[in-house]
Amino acid sequence: MKITQISVFLENRKGRLYEICSMLGKAGINIRALTIAETESFGVLRMVVDKPAEAVELFRRNSVTANQTEVVAVEVPDKPGGLAEVLKVLSDHNVNVEYMYGFIEKFSENALLVFRFDNPEYAHQVLSQNHIKVVGQRDIKGL
């Protein structure tokens, strides 16, 4: 069960992040999770939104440089050591995490994290075999 992450190229310019977010806001698209990876002169905005297809179309129409990536949203017990438990399972099965970040809201009683794996299919299989809950696109929309 994979979900769509949208990556946006951000040049280092005042107000650019605001422009992107306000574009989404005006289109009624809600950001559910977000992180920025940056270097000294540019960055990549990564986010999970409630309506990814609409966001992609919106960016295309406005000539925003964007791309879709498959990520996995994983429920992580919201308690000390909760994330470590999940990472141990992944590590034991040689699943590499490229990067990860948190959702803005909790899902049920658990925290929800976005993981980018080099091999999402295998990662998903490992997670479900170890009874770690993975959340689908439909669940995100309902958040």
């Binding site: 990556s7 190229f9 270097t39 990536t69």
Partner: peptide, 15 residues
Amino acid sequence: EIYSKMFTGDLNALE
């Protein structure tokens, strides 16, 4: 300017 169709979302690729 980067060519938008070549953008993969990968920061390392940009570096």
